[in-house]
């Protein structure tokens, strides 16, 4: 029982990472109906930026905030420069562009920082907090950071004018434009936000999975599974889905399938959800007009 609880709690920590990345995917999906396959690699690249800053002697939390800011800018620039021209392109074209981005970030990181695995420091102390014997302090810290980030994102979308404008632009671009919202910039900010959220996910994941250019492949897959499970057009559903998938992955890895074929769990969840309930647990059913 204790061992089982241990698996569940450390699953929650990875679940927090998946939840963050799933949220990043949802932010972009809501605005554009595209699933950003490059989200994981962008997060990985952000993590390298953080590593670079820390390596140059910047204290952890300053590097943390600086990385988020830089990632935000990178995300915005990518939307403006790379994604914008494909605004009205068919789904296949956009998928190919995302795959292109994925490859570019992966090889840029390999080129600049090499493919050797690096360790990434955790900002949290070595001893577990409050005598919590189920989670290391990094694991509980990850959950705390994720929840804090979620609260901020919620406040931003719910209580700020910009957040409202972004929701309006995602919901009804034409009307938003008519009331004077600059829809293009809202999309760019959405991309920036997604990149910043992804950066947090990356920095929280790196001490657990170590830092290398391919670290995010599996994580992105589980995040996608989480986002789909919760409903890819519902941020809260996606976050919850991320946590569920994290726990499922850990428990299944420990008791059912072994750690070597964990990724197949994600495959089964993705295909299963898409076939049985494509809108996910909390998503809206979409009736398309033809």
């Amino acid at each position: 029982m204790v061992a089982f609880l241990h698996q569940v709690f450390s699953g929650l920590a990875m679940g927090a990472v998946y939840a963050s990345l799933a949220l990043a995917l949802v932010v972009i999906y809501q605005a554009t109906h595209h699933v950003n396959f490059a989200q994981g690699e962008m997060a990985m690249f952000s993590t390298y930026i953080a590593w670079d800053l820390i390596d140059r002697g910047v204290p952890y939390w300053e590097a943390f905030l600086l990385t988020i800011a830089i990632s935000f800018l990178i995300g915005m620039v990518i939307e403006r420069v790379v994604i914008r021209p494909f605004e009205r392109a068919p789904a296949l074209t956009v998928v190919i562009v995302f795959i292109g981005l994925l490859v570019i970030f992966n090889s840029l990181a390999g080129w600049r920082y090499s493919y050797t695995i690096k360790s990434f420091e955790s900002p949290f102390p070595d001893e577990p907090w409050f005598g919590n014997s189920f989670m290391s302090s990094h694991e509980s810290g990850t959950v705390v950071v994720t929840l804090a980030m979620l609260a901020l994102v919620y406040i931003f979308f719910r209580f700020t004018k910009l957040g409202l404008a972004m929701r309006a632009a995602a919901l009804n671009p034409t009307s938003s434009r008519l009331v004077g919202i600059r829809v293009g910039w809202m999309l760019a900010i959405g991309w920036g936000l997604a990149a910043a959220i992804g950066a947090i996910a990356g920095m929280m994941a790196a001490p657990i999975v170590y830092l290398d250019p391919n670290m995010m492949g599996g994580i992105l897959l589980f995040s996608l599974a989480g986002a789909l499970l919760g409903g890819i057009d519902n941020p809260w559903g996606a976050v919850l889905g991320g946590f569920i998938v994290g726990v499922l992955e850990n428990v299944a890895g420990a008791y059912l399938v072994g750690t070597e074929i964990k990724l197949s769990v994600a495959l089964i969840i993705i295909v299963g959800v898409l076939v049985a309930k494509p809108s996910g647990l909390f998503g809206r059913r979409i009736a398309a007009r033809v």
């Binding site: 998928v95 897959l221 996608l224 599974a225 074929i261 994600a266 993705i270 898409l274 494509p278």
Partner: peptide, 20 residues
């Protein structure tokens, strides 16, 4: 049952899971 990007997603998962 999977249009457009959802199929891309499912096959993406397939590609990642194959070596494992």
């Amino acid at each position: 049952r999977l249009g457009g990007i959802y199929l891309a997603l499912a096959t993406f998962a397939l590609a990642l899971a194959t070596p494992q």
